[in-house]
Amino acid sequence: MKRDAFDIVICGVGGQGIILASNVLCHAAFLEGFDVKKSEVHGMAQRGGSVITHVRIDDKVYSPLIEQGNSDIVLAFEKLEAMRYIHYLKKNGTAIVNDREIQPMSVLTGAASYPTNIKSKLNQHGKIYYVDAKNVALELGNIRTVNIILLGVLSCFLGFKKRSWKTAIRKNVKKKFVDLNLVAFSKGASRLTNTFSIKKEK
């Protein structure tokens, strides 16, 4: 039987922990028995620049890149970055957007302005879920858990076994942060049923 395949674009701002999140995702997909390919950006862009990671999960994957307009899911760690890469989303695809605004330097210096219509634009392109991961992370006492919280939300759409996720987190996260991140993950995973924190906006 052919299982569901997933093309997932993860985007955000360099330094938000996207690489770790994508490592965990790939590892979980691997444990589920899929072929996986991932492509990411290192080096200069990691210094607070716009970053995009491609994760492809299928029975057999060739290119490590997702084509624009083909991604099943876009997981955005920041709203402006969601808008920058939303054209990767396929028709009626799903986007999970961290409801967070990080202003790029051009906005900070007043040379450009941060778009005010992001949500209304995004909402035209599919099922868009907004998550306030920053507050969940601050509740947990560590802002750096944002990435795993968002991964928890993503997990609701993939149907992988919980065990796969747990093992993947254990294998990829520094030992002393494993427990914290397991909690962060389940917080994220339970957000989907909690209509207060995930608003599916029309």
């Binding site: 920058r84 939303i86 906005v107």
Partner: peptide, 27 residues
Amino acid sequence: QRIVRESFVRKTRARIKPYKVPARPPV
């Protein structure tokens, strides 16, 4: 793969145009 397709096949699928948003170079 899109550039390969557009170069040799000249058929591009309809897709959403990227939005024009402020660039975010590294800092």
